[in-house]
Structures are given as structure tokens and as C-alpha cells.
Write a protein that binds this DNA or RNA. Structure first.
Lengths: 103, 103
DNA sequence: GGGAAATATTTCTGTCAAGGAATACGAGCA
DNA sequence: TGCTCGTATTCCTTGACAGAAATATTTCCC
């Protein structure tokens, strides 16, 4: 559970992050939105918080979670060379098509 | 093990993909490059193949694995809204700084 | 065809993480 | 102070996956 990728590999956690795209949500709201028990959600929230993907703010008896997408840049960075690779494939395809056009 | 993200969450599998950025490699070469037993590597290669992340080609007694980065687009797509979110944060920061400049 | 090299598959075991139930904690309110 | 709501933590069980060792399979060479 060290890397961001591993944290994000869990479907429920991805759901939580997607939910937080709408804005800050209380733990209770997140529980209501997930097919999971309250403790289950709470545990996922802890993992996300430890990974720096969310920040918490206390307001009265509630905990408000806010998305913090910065660590996802790590995934983006990892993806970069592969993005280049698939662009090369596209380039090759275009070159091929161009070659066909000439005939 | 359904999604690409889960497949790629495994460090050894990421290592294999990174290795294949250099070009086609035989299973043996991959085994030699990883701190893992031959069967272990072979199993990971199967997972990668099932996920469509590599293609195999037989040449003599060897199996040559080639990178096929297309499924990674799925991760890229998932990342998109979060990328927007972090751009918003940057914009907010710039706006803030611009505001400070004026004073 | 027999043997050896390259790789895949099976079997087994240990580990780790996810999920649920119960419990603990903390803040606000009567 | 005691009670209740919102949330976190603990404990336990279960299932899945990673890894190693042994075995099977395929292909080449003699």
C-alpha cells in the first residue's frame, strides 16, 4: 500500500475520489453514496488521506473530505513514456496511410 | 484482476512494462532482468497478456513479448477529470498571485 | 526418436488486504 | 454531567494474490 497506484487500484476508493470531484463531502455523505458499511468507508478514507489524496477538515461533529489530486501526478508521470509509445504507433499508422495514399 | 489499473498496480509488472519500452524482449531476458523466479515472471506475463498490455510472438523456442500500451489509455482517461481539478488549483493560485501583484 | 533448452502450468503456502460487527472516541446538546 | 450523533478504531474472518518448487509442454538439435 505504498504507492498511489496501489491506493487507486481499489474500485471503492476510485468511487470516493470521483465523488469528491463534485466538491467537499462529509464522511456521512460518502457512506450514503457507497455500497459499503460505515467502518469500511472510514477505512478507505484513511488510506486516501495517508496517500495525500484527500484532506480532512473538522466542522462540528462532521469530518469534511476534500479532494487533493496532486499525488495523481505521479501516475501521470509514470504514464508519460507509454504515451510516447502509443503516439509512435499512431505516427507509424499515419505514415503507412500516407504511403498508401501515394499509390 | 479485471481492470488495467489493478494489473499495473503490481510493481513487478510495471517493471516488465518499463523494460519493454526498450523494445521486444524474450521471456528469458525478462526473467534475467527481474528479481523473480522464472515461473513467477511467466505468470505476470500471462496477466499482462490477458490485459492486452503485451503481445506475444513465437520465434524458435523463444516467446518474444512486445509492449502494447493502448489499454493504458483507460488510465489516462480516468485521470482526465482529476487533471482538470489540479489545473483549477493552479489557476486559483495564479489568480491569487495576480491579485497580490496588484497591491 | 532422444535429449536439452525455453517457457508455461500446476500445486502449495504464506501474506495481506477488504469487509462486517462490535466498540471506542469526541463534540455538541439537554 | 449524561446522552446522542457522527466518525474512527479494533478484532476477526475470508478470499485473493504473489511467490517458490516441481512438473508439463513445446521446439530444436543430434
Amino acid at each position: 500500500m505504498t504507492g498511489v497506484l496501489e491506493v487507486v487500484a481499489e474500485p471503492h476508493r476510485r468511487l470516493i475520489l470521483t465523488l469528491l470531484l463534485e466538491g467537499e463531502k462529509s464522511a456521512g455523505e460518502i457512506v450514503a453514496a457507497l455500497p459499503l458499511s460505515q467502518p469500511g468507508v472510514s477505512k478507505h478514507l484513511k488510506v486516501l488521506k495517508d496517500a495525500g489524496l484527500v484532506t480532512v477538515r473538522r466542522q462540528a461533529r462532521q469530518r469534511l473530505y476534500r479532494l487533493c489530486p496532486d499525488p495523481l501526478r505521479e501516475i501521470d508521470a509514470w504514464l508519460t513514456p507509454f504515451r510516447d509509445a502509443w503516439n509512435e504507433r499512431l505516427d507509424a499508422l499515419e505514415t503507412h496511410l500516407d504511403g498508401m495514399e501515394e499509390t
